[in-house]
Amino acid sequence: TFYNFIMGFQNDNTPFGILAEHVSEDKAFPRLEERHQVIRAYVMSNYTDHQLIETTNRAISLYMANL
C-alpha cells in the first residue's frame, strides 16, 4: 500500500520523511487504501500545508512508477 511505501521514509530528513511522520500520526489516514485517487483526495481534503500536499503528489507518482 501507499502507507507502507511512505513509512519506509520514516526518520529520513527529507520531504518524504516529513510526510511519513505526518501520515504515521494521522489516525484517520487510509492505511489500507491502494487507489492513489482516494489517497490524493484524502490529503487534499485533510491537509492544509501546501508543501505536504506537493510532497504527497510526488510520493504517489514515485509509488505508482514502482508498482
Rank of each mutant, 00 (worst) to 15 (best):
L62F: 07
A28H: 15
G8K: 14
M44F: 09
H50V: 14
Y42I: 03
D26H: 06
L67A: 12
Q51D: 14
R58M: 13
G17H: 05
F16E: 02
V23E: 01
P30F: 05
H50P: 15
N66C: 11
G17I: 04
E25W: 09
L62I: 11
F9E: 00
R58K: 13
A41E: 14
H50L: 14
D49Y: 13
A65E: 12
T48L: 10
Q10P: 05
N11T: 06
I39L: 06
H36F: 11
T1S: 13
G8P: 04
L19V: 05
G8H: 10
N4G: 10
F29S: 03
L19G: 03
V43C: 07
Q51S: 13
T55L: 12
N11H: 13
T56L: 14
E33L: 03
E21W: 14
N57W: 10
L32S: 12
G17P: 02
E33W: 03
L32F: 14
V38D: 06
F29Y: 04
N46A: 09
T14W: 03
L32D: 15
T14N: 07
F16M: 10
H36D: 08
L52V: 05
T55C: 06
N11G: 15
Y3S: 00
F16C: 06
F5S: 00
T1L: 06
R40D: 03
Y63R: 02
E34C: 13
Y3T: 01
N13K: 12
N11Y: 12
E25R: 15
H50A: 14
K27V: 11
H22Y: 14
F5D: 00
P15M: 09
I18A: 13
V23A: 03
N13M: 10
A20V: 05
D12Q: 14
L52Y: 05
Q10W: 12
I53F: 05
S45C: 09
A28Y: 14
L67T: 12
F2Q: 00
H50R: 12
M7G: 01
A28R: 10
A20N: 03
N66I: 13
T14H: 07
A59C: 05
A59V: 07
E33H: 03
L52T: 04
Q10F: 13
E54L: 09
M7D: 00
T56Q: 02
H50F: 11
E25S: 15
F2H: 00
Y63F: 12
